[in-house]
Simulated assay, not measured.
Amino acid sequence: MISHVIWDLGETLTTPPNSRMDVKPLTEYPEIELREHVLEVLETINNMGLKHAILSNTATSDSDVVRELLKRLHILDKFEYVYATKSELDPSIPEKPDSIVYHQVLEKLDIQPEEAVMIGNTWDTDVIGANRIGMHSIWLQNLEISVRKDFDEKVVTPPWILPVWDIAEVPKAIELIIGCSQNEDRAEP
């Protein structure tokens, strides 16, 4: 049964810094704001009985900096766990799509991959990383923010991958995944 939604941060929940990458801590970018509909979507998902976490690849911001940013944006209290990789400038640090970072978050949440849905804007990290470990995902495909470089990576279903064009569609996509998961559970011998 799905119990958690794990969110990417930049370009999914928040707008990016003007420089597009956090070359300094995210808290030092006053222009970063919540994307449209984020508050309503987080609340709707809370009302569905699901919990939230964040797994974000970042350049210079660690998890404490991301928590400070979320506090400034008045949404920190919505998240059970926040993990920022601080890896984009250091290839020796694991980041999405590496399974180790997904498993670290799942371990902290004390859940299995099939109990979570990953939501992000980047196919190559958010969606493929989740798929490789057996986690459902929702790919935010807004043309302004969607990223896909690898068109050859194969996916396995289930877990389910659903595309949405706007973050406001995420709760409905989660309902569809929950429905598919419940049907799978009933079909197992």
Rank of each mutant, 00 (worst) to 15 (best):
I100T: 11
S99N: 06
V127G: 10
L69C: 07
K96A: 06
V117E: 07
D77W: 12
L73P: 12
G129Y: 01
P94D: 07
L140R: 10
D126C: 09
K71F: 10
T125E: 06
H103A: 04
E107C: 02
T58F: 00
I45N: 09
L42H: 05
G129E: 03
E115Y: 01
L42N: 03
T85L: 01
D98M: 09
G120L: 13
E68P: 00
L76E: 14
D77Q: 15
P113T: 03
Q104W: 10
L39Y: 03
D98R: 10
E107Q: 10
A84Y: 04
Y81G: 00
I75E: 11
S137F: 09
G49W: 13
E107T: 07
S137V: 07
I75A: 11
H74S: 10
M118S: 10
A53I: 02
D110H: 14
E144M: 15
N121W: 08
E80M: 05
K96M: 11
Q104L: 15
L69S: 01
K86N: 10
V41Y: 01
D110F: 04
G120K: 08
E80R: 08
A84W: 00
P91M: 09
I119M: 08
V38G: 12
F79T: 06
K51H: 07
E40A: 15
Y83M: 13
P113G: 08
E107M: 04
E68T: 03
L39T: 01
D90S: 06
D90C: 02
I75S: 12
S99F: 05
E115A: 13
H103E: 13
N121R: 12
D110N: 15
R132L: 03
A130Y: 10
T122P: 05
T58N: 02
E114N: 05
V101L: 13
P97Q: 14
R67E: 13
H103G: 00
R72S: 14
